[in-house]
């Protein structure tokens, strides 16, 4: 049999194979135990000696060729397998999974604020919502019958004299400083309450994050540095910040802190009341009377404190214009965060 003819026959045959089964048949026909190549090989001993070598090389070449054709075809047949055998999938159909829920935006913002300070090295501490008048006011240098109380209208408890719903998270300063020695770096998230009539920008229950740091050598310039770092992280890196003198009974010097309006970038718009600035927090150096109350030597230690409204930050960040949306719990609202 002429090997060249066999070769052309092989090449012709393999072209028409398009299934793994056909390919296997082809392999058996040529390379099987009783296949063509085996038969050719078995004829070698019968040949004259001078022809043996040449014929043998030809058979080997044929075998090699068949093997490489097989290998080539195998790839093609296998890669076609998925298309030909699997059921049809419309990838445009919805994916299959448990639909995921959403954390409340106030939780997300609170976590974001706390985690920024946490990364700087602040610990997160919580305190009770029911507080004593002492911790909420007197210990924070807010005299009981004083106009500075105006800013902190408060819900008092029935049946428990001098107990109230905290009107700010600052009482946790008093608690923490009473039980822990400096150095202290703490943030306090939590609910606070003030008897305000509910409207688009007021709520009788809202959320604050308080932060404070006490150590030897803490300065007003540190407060500026920490809060600038915070504002650039939570809003964006090109935000401008300004500190305005203000009054809080528990800090001296005190400041109100504004950021350049994130809507108009400081040009003036309806969100910032054409001022170009948005007030986001209050801060200052902890008042010596607060230290005195908790038994920290203000000659030795200094500290700063700051506080911010979570709703305020969330409203600015997400462009929400009505505080009541946070407590309505419309799932179409919640699903956006």
């Amino acid at each position: 049999m002429d090997i060249d003819i066999i070769l052309s026959q092989v090449e012709e045959e393999i072209k028409n194979i398009n299934s793994p089964e056909g390919l296997e048949q082809f392999r058996l026909k040529y390379l099987g135990r009783k296949g063509v190549v085996a038969q050719l090989t078995s004829t070698i001993p019968t040949l004259p000696n001078q022809e043996k070598a040449v014929f043998g090389q030809k058979v080997n070449a044929l075998k090699g060729k068949i093997l490489s054709l097989l290998k080539e075809k195998q790839g093609a047949v296998v890669s076609g397998k998925g298309v030909s055998q699997e059921p049809y999938v419309d990838i445009g159909m919805p994916g299959i999974a448990q639909e995921i829920g959403h954390l409340h935006p106030l939780t997300q913002i609170t976590e974001e604020i706390c985690s920024i300070f946490n990364r700087i090295g602040f610990s997160i501490v919580e305190g009770p919502e029911i507080e004593t008048e002492q911790n909420n006011f007197t210990g924070l240098n807010i005299p009981l019958e004083h106009p500075s109380r105006e800013a902190f209208d408060t819900f008092y408890l029935k049946d428990y004299p001098k107990m109230l719903l905290r009107s700010h998270t600052s009482p946790v300063q008093v608690r923490a400083m009473k039980t822990h020695k400096p150095p202290l770096a703490i943030v306090v998230p939590g609910k606070v309450y003030r008897p305000d009539a509910v409207d688009a920008s007021h709520s009788f229950m809202f959320h604050q994050v308080e932060g404070f740091m006490v150590d030897k050598g803490i300065q007003f310039s540190d407060l500026k540095g920490i809060l600038e770092l915070f504002a650039r992280t939570i809003f964006n890196s090109d935000i401008k910040m300004r500190f305005r003198p203000h009054f809080f009974p528990f800090t001296e010097p005190s400041a109100e802190v504004d950021i350049s309006c994130i809507i108009c970038k400081g040009k003036g718009c309806s969100v910032c009341g054409r001022k170009g600035w948005l007030e986001i927090l209050g801060a200052g150096m902890i008042h010596p009377n607060v230290f005195k109350h908790v038994g920290i030597d203000s000659g030795k230690y200094t500290g700063f404190a700051f506080g911010m409204g979570v709703e305020r930050i969330a409203m600015l960040k997400y462009g929400i214009n009505d505080i009541r949306l946070f407590f309505e719990n419309d799932v179409r609202f919640l699903r956006q965060f």
Partner: peptide
Amino acid sequence: YENIPSTLPRVLPSINI
């Protein structure tokens, strides 16, 4: 206040909290 510089304090983590 704008003429006061910004600095960053050394923060020691309070591991006892």
